[in-house]
């Protein structure tokens, strides 16, 4: 019999119901698109005439931002329910999330593709599948920076696919990212460092116990974290640039997170 470390089981237990998240976000985005649709209601039309302005149709990029924003809400919800995180004061919780929100967003995307298991298509958090043809079109329209980042993401997916990273390991990675011991000025610094060490130890124990034939699996997994961090940093820079040029829809958690790190 295999003994999965209790901590790893606890991490899996704290995972959100994917279908619930999917329903919540797809409903939200459907409403949003309805609101933004040029001919949605008579009231809207009247308003448009009055303001003499065409309602702006949500661009693909704008839609992606809303999707990322909604994903962030679900990430915060997840963190709130996490073992260890609950014990921290809100100030420390905020500092940890400010530090890692984009890494958790990128990991969320990557993990979804990984467990989706279809190399040719991309699965969105809404449950929609982007077909290879649509994906190619999107890449062509995206511009060099964005398409480069998406491709970098796909490479990371492939690497983790080769490793066959499982769901329990994915859950551990989320904790390693959340409890980053490099975050400074925490009220409870030693607690965060201690949790990080505990998660590290649990993941090591898990890989040795479940995959004893691959003794370097643990380090192989950890080696992907700097790549993830680099990609998320690039995504943040890109979002900042888009935000400054007024292309990111406003009043949301995404922008608040962008500001928090830059100020």
């Amino acid at each position: 019999g295999l003994t999965v470390p209790a901590l790893v089981l606890e991490f899996v237990r704290c995972e959100q119901d994917e279908l619930q998240v999917q329903n919540k976000i797809s409903t939200h985005l459907a409403h949003l698109q309805q609101e933004q649709s040029p001919r949605s209601t008579v009231a809207n039309q009247e308003q448009n005439v009055r303001h003499a302005a065409k309602p702006e149709r949500l661009t693909t990029f704008g839609l992606m931002c809303h999707m990322a924003d909604q994903t962030l809400f679900s990430i915060v919800e997840w963190a709130r329910g996490c073992i260890f995180f609950k014990e921290l004061k809100v100030g420390d919780q905020m500092k940890l999330l400010h530090n890692c929100w984009s890494e958790l967003l990128v990991l969320d995307y990557i993990a979804r593709q990984l467990h989706h298991g279809k190399a040719e298509s991309v699965l969105l958090i809404t449950g929609q599948e982007v077909t290879p043809v649509e994906f190619t079109t999107l890449l062509a329209q995206a511009g060099v920076t964005l398409s480069g980042m998406i491709q970098r993401g796909q490479e990371l997916v492939h690497r983790l696919q080769e490793l066959q990273l499982d769901r329990r390991e994915t859950a551990c990675l989320k904790y390693l990212i959340l409890f980053n011991p490099d975050v400074k000025l925490l009220e409870n610094q030693s607690y965060v460092e201690n949790v990080y060490e505990q998660v590290n130890a649990a993941l090591l124990e898990y890989t040795l116990c479940v995959y004893p034939q691959y003794p370097d699996r643990f380090s192989q997994i950890l080696m992907r974290l700097p790549e993830l961090r680099a990609l998320s940093a690039q995504s943040e820079d890109y979002l900042c640039y888009k935000h400054l040029s007024g292309e990111v829809p406003c009043n949301n958690l995404l922008i608040e997170m962008l500001h928090a790190k830059r100020t």
Partner: peptide
């Protein structure tokens, strides 16, 4: 700066029910 973090603080602080 504080105003910038209002939404996150609210989300972390709010009661579950």
């Amino acid at each position: 700066k504080k105003k910038d973090n209002a939404l996150l603080r609210y989300l972390l602080d709010k009661d579950d029910n």
